[in-house]
Write a protein that binds this DNA or RNA. Sequence first.
RNA 1: CGGGGCGUAGCGCAGCUGGUAGCGCGCAGCGUUCGGGACGCUGAGGUCGGAGGUUCAAGUCCUCUCGCCCCGACCA
Length: 586
Amino acid sequence: MRFSKLFGKTLRQAPAEAESISHQLLVRAGMIAQEAAGIYSYLPLGWRVLRKIENVIRDEMDKVGGQELMLPVLQPFELWQQSGRDIAFGKSLFTLTDRKDHMLALGPTHEEVITDLVHRYVQSYRELPLLLYQIQTKLRDEPRPRGGLLRVREFIMKDLYSFDADEAGLDESYRKMCQAYKNIYARLGLPALMIEADSGAIGGKDSHEFMVITEDGEDEVIHCSSCGYAANVEKAQSAKSLVSIHRSSESSQAKAKSMLPLEEIATPGTKTIEEVADFVGVPASQTLKAVFYFADGEFVFVIIRGDLEVNETKLRNALRCSDLRLATEIEVIGAGIVAGFASPIRMKRVKVVADDSITLGSNFIVGANKPGYHFRNANYPRDFQADLITDIALAKPGDSCPKCQGKLASARGIEVGHVFKLGTFISEKFEASFLDNDGKSRPITMGCYGIGLGRLLAAIVEKSHDANGIIWPLSVAPYQVYICPLSLDKPAVLPTAEEIYQALQREGIEVLFDDRDDSPGIKFNDADLLGIPLRLTLSPRTLQSQSVEAKWRAEKKARLLPLENLAPQVKRLLNHEASLNLEYHH
RNA sequence: CGGGGCGUAGCGCAGCUGGUAGCGCGCAGCGUUCGGGACGCUGAGGUCGGAGGUUCAAGUCCUCUCGCCCCGACCA
């Protein structure tokens, strides 16, 4: 490609709205252009990168036996009603009506369509397992697109669905897919961490996300440096026992003995946990905190140890509700609760959900549901009950690791892949079943596996750039070589560059030829901004010694290559680099 | 949906207490330059996001509206 003919323009300054590094660099390099919030065009350079990423993914999917197909973007709305996910997706689902007033959804994902399809084709266990995938545009009306390509409303995604006869089969498909994902990230030069993830209120049992740790990421990852435990904060656990060894070895009888009689104490003007704890003279972990929610319209009293925070994702899952919001103070009062002195002990009957932390301690301070009063020595279950006791606490940096008691830390990450064990939830809704070898009908066990291509592209830029621009790994670079002739008006420069351009292309090398009559500064800066891996510079100076200068984008130093037989030399350099990368990753 | 910010030339911005729009980059032409964003001269490009209002007069003041960005809520 001749630079002078390339559609797209490099910018010295990024648009003001570009905040994240990847957004700035991709726009400045002329790779993407914004159309509306969360809607982008890929310009020729960006599209070349995207197609390369796509081919790496396709290659790895095919290697594990995936079969590529193409499902429709327009989906009958009935399919979403059938799975019940029209409600779960809510407003994120783009819908429209056709000329006959028939409602259609623009596919945000394709479990419904593919399960409906598989249900019509698969009858026997002999046809399983099955791995079907597509690489296609997805549409989601995200409440808040952000960060350039990091979160958008229209994006290209590879989604694969696995269909197995049983859990064991699913486990095997899941394992294969995780390995394939790791291969993909390795080939793209992307350090991705596999972490435990939340699978949502109607998801299956296991779910993992692949995270690239970077400041511009929008997810929070909680991880332990001593044992490698890592999870999305939505899912992460932390050890809640404050004096773990002592307390876990304590018998329940000893605990019962240590319970003191419940006692009402005056705590005037103490509304917050800090005020109460200070007033009474105990740590926050010796108090109980009450928080109030509406879950699908039902008032819920949530109780948790005073030093912990509620993890709303966990709470939503525990309640199996789709809509969860904090109750307003007026609603709390309306439920007969004395705000600031709320108590599970002295109140009218409402649903109570407790964090399991309340079972780990004893003799807590808790509200008395009476203005200006708290109880001392509240103990579960002696003094109050709960409808549900489970882990609903938010893990925080500094907490103890649930696996090894090491210290947890927090980091920001970009989710570059998400895999789920769906189980039979969706196949049952669509009656996607098969006959096993005993002639019995059983639902197909499903898994789904997604990678967003644009986000992957952005993540690569986030992780691989310097002050001058992008540094593409060879595997996805829009071009492999950048030919940079200087002083075009001097004899031999342009004709020689032209010859090299032709010769490299004959070797099958992808070349961007900077044939513009511009100053060296402009050319070098653009070459750096675009991030083409190998730059070949020729000028009257290098031609004097019958050579060109070769420089890797990622390196400082350059070397001279003789003009004689240049193309095979460049080919060898590129092959060597490619093999180094593979070795490094495997 | 809550909070904050911003819409003036392709991009980055200036334009105060109202007086009829400017700078840098980029773009076009000519000339001089040519190893890390060179220089001179000439030139093209704007219904100041939109609608309504106040005023002799609105980019500037008022009302409404649309769009974009950030934080949060939300998020298979």
